[in-house]
């Protein structure tokens, strides 16, 4: 496989194009609905609009890290140790880290407007920052080199440990007294205390960011497959060259 082949064909498929189109439509609604059609909150005013990015990106980051954990478990448990699982794990973690960064950034801005401060060492904020740092570490470990199999083995173990942080992050507002508010949609009492249009836009945001996640991961894991193939081909070519030299 050559770089030229990769460039001319790209990594898109009919499915990824559907994902892309759905993501554009859904996030277009979130943008318009979030900025113009949804009402102001009675307490927070316009600041509530940050919620339409903050909450979906947090949920999708959780989803991404769970996908990383599941794919890693599949790689470890599977008899064939298919590297496809490892690539999905890596791609999902990369996208999750980006979404988690968006969550932290948007949350910080929201905090400045509502709480009066960009950051507090509150249980929810601290555990979220720790989760983010853990997955940046996971990506660093993936980049340490070695064969794709070595990379898959060490990173899958880390992924299975790191995913255990997610319940701690989610329930931190229940376990400890926290400045961060409790969940509105996934609240322990199951009662959703949110205006209908706000809730609709929020859930549409979750859908839009989820489809965007699927679209990004589909492309990224294909690019990773191509990178692995290039690496393997380069090694094969080097070995073949040495064999030829030995025959001369």
């Amino acid at each position: 496989m050559t770089t030229a082949t990769v460039n001319s064909k790209g990594v898109g498929t009919p499915t990824t194009r559907i994902y892309g189109a759905l993501a554009i439509v859904a996030l277009g609604w979130v943008l318009l609905g979030g900025l113009f059609f949804t009402p102001e909150d009675v307490v927070q005013g316009d600041a509530v609009r940050i919620m339409y990015v903050h909450v979906p990106t947090a949920w999708v980051a959780y989803l991404a890290f769970i996908v990383t954990g599941i794919a890693s478990a599949c790689w470890l448990i599977g008899k064939k140790h298919s590297l496809g699982f490892d690539r999905v794990a890596g791609a999902s973690a990369e996208v999750g880290v980006v979404f988690m960064a968006m969550t932290l950034l948007s949350g910080s801005l929201w905090g400045r407007i509502t709480w009066g401060t960009y950051w507090v060492w509150d249980p929810r904020l601290t555990t979220t920052a720790f989760l983010f740092v853990t997955y940046v570490g996971y990506l660093a470990v993936r980049g340490l080199g070695g064969s794709p199999e070595q990379r898959a083995r060490r990173s899958s173990v880390i992924a299975l440990l790191a995913v255990l942080e997610i319940p701690l992050v989610h329930f931190s507002v229940v376990l400890w007294r926290s400045l961060h508010q409790q969940a509105s949609v996934l609240s322990p009492d199951g009662d959703i205390k949110m205006d209908g249009l706000m809730l609709f836009t929020l859930l549409f945001g979750v859908f839009g960011f989820s489809v965007l996640f699927a679209w990004l991961v589909s492309h990224r894991q294909r690019i990773m497959a191509m990178q692995d193939a290039l690496q393997t081909n380069a090694l094969d070519a080097a070995v073949s060259e040495r064999l030829r030299e030995a025959q001369v």
């Binding site: 009675v42 205390k193 706000m198």
Partner: peptide, 29 residues
């Protein structure tokens, strides 16, 4: 140092409801 908490309730601004809440003790916010 003072930090403001906000609840997990999100409600649209409604002039009638604001007038009503002004007449009663802290219940809504």
């Amino acid at each position: 140092r003072i930090e403001v908490k906000h609840s997990n309730q999100y409600e649209a601004e409604n002039p009638d409801r604001i007038a009503e809440s002004k007449a009663t003790p802290c219940t809504q916010l």
